[in-house]
Simulated scan of single mutants.
Amino acid sequence: MPANKPPFDGEWVKLGDVCKVVGGSTPKTDDPGNWGGDIKWVTPAEIRESVNLVTDTLKHVTPQGVRAARLRIMPAGTVLLTTRAPIGKVALAGDEMCCNQGFKCLICSSEISNEWLLRLLRYKSCELQQMGTGATFRELSKKVVSSYRVKLPAMASQLLTVERLSSLEKLLRVLRRQLVLLDQLVKSRFVEIFGSYSNEFETTLQDVSEFVTVGIANAATHAYVDSGVVMLRNLNVRENQLEDSDLVYIDPEFAAKYKKKRLKAGDILVTRTGYPGIACVVPKKYEGCQTFTTLIVRLRDDSPVTAEYVSQLINSPIGKEFVGRFKAGSSQQNFGATALKMMPIGIPPLALQQEFASFVAEVDKSRFIVQQKIEKLQTLYDSLAQEYFG
């Protein structure tokens, strides 16, 4: 047995045998006497990925609301498992609280560590999602959760598992925080260099671009393949960087139908739907790829502005304010190429833009190193989780 693997010396048990499984509900919203009290009331939307502890909630209920909805006030340490919209998000209650009907919560007995159960359920989230039933939306019933079987090791092994995984989680949080700080560094440097220019609008994006258009806008899922031409989507576009952990590929013959939309290094991608107006520059390794419904900006060869400057300008408060004025839609917001073409652009001295581009390139090197460390640690974490819970 590997030295780093706690022995699984326990037996298969049902969660209902080692935990008290409780649900929740929603007090009537049209009765103001139910709301605005001191009792915390959590919803699935407040359970964030990789955040282990919920210490406060967006809404609070009164004792009247608790009685009216027959809510159970759960103790701190309760495992909060979402069982509808969506299934499989999990966290610990950092204080006494109750919940809505989107949860089946587990109050652990002395036989099972809540920290251990938190990590096991997070590892099993895909399996739990497959167990959901329902026509309108999938849901896990109290019976299903109570009957769910886990192999429960001795408490010493549970605590050792938690210790090893939580130490890696702390390192991952530190590294992810470094990425946030690097992004903030780029934003601060942009303001420092261009603060006196970004408010001086001298032209529009259309006037400095070869074209501003949208990527492939026709149905493309039928052309998905395991290996082919990368097709970037809105979800891959982050502020000043591409997130390439969830790429899709399309058939080369299908991609060839859209030759004019092939990306070039230095193009600027701007999200069109979901969270419109997020921009990044296309790196060299994605030259020749396609995009799905993202906006593509290609600057003229003799453009007086650089791609790095334009990308950060779109991501800046000035750009966000412009996008906010022109985006449309309520449930699914979108922002079109016609509006983006009209975005006012200040033109700082080229030397300053090149200085900023060089700075961004150095930050990208640091970001790449940090991202590599994250990927290695995440691989180790996933490997250990599979050993402990698989």
Score class of each variant (00 low, 15 high):
I107A: 02
E115R: 15
L92E: 05
Q129P: 00
G102Y: 07
C126R: 14
I73W: 01
E115C: 11
Q101A: 07
W116N: 10
L121Q: 03
A135Y: 03
C108M: 03
R119A: 01
L106H: 01
R72Y: 12
M131E: 03
A68V: 10
D95F: 00
M97D: 04
M74I: 05
I87Y: 06
S113D: 13
M97C: 12
M131I: 04
G77P: 08
F103Y: 14
R67S: 14
M74T: 02
P86V: 08
M97N: 06
S109N: 10
A93W: 00
S110H: 15
C99F: 05
G102T: 05
C99W: 03
K104C: 03
S125T: 09
A69Y: 09
G134S: 09
I107M: 05
L92W: 03
C99P: 00
G94A: 14
L106F: 04
A85N: 11
P75C: 05
R72C: 11
L106T: 04
S113N: 11
M131A: 03
L118R: 13
C126G: 10
N114G: 13
L120F: 15
M97K: 11
K124S: 12
E115S: 15
L121S: 03
G102D: 06
E96Q: 13
C105P: 00
T133D: 06
A69F: 09
E111T: 10
G134T: 09
M97I: 12
R70C: 07
K104T: 06
K104E: 04
A76Q: 12
Y123I: 01
M131S: 02
R119K: 14
I73N: 03
N100H: 12
A69C: 07
V90Y: 01
L92A: 12
Q130G: 14
E115M: 09
L117S: 04
T82A: 15
Q130L: 14
L71N: 09
L81H: 04
G134F: 08
R72N: 15
Q129A: 11
M131R: 15
L71V: 13
G77R: 03
G132S: 07
A135S: 15
A76M: 04
G88D: 00
R72Q: 13
I112H: 03
R84M: 12
L120R: 11
S110F: 11
E127R: 13
M97Y: 02
K89F: 11
T82I: 12
L106I: 09
L80S: 07
Q101I: 09
G88H: 04
R84P: 03
M74P: 02
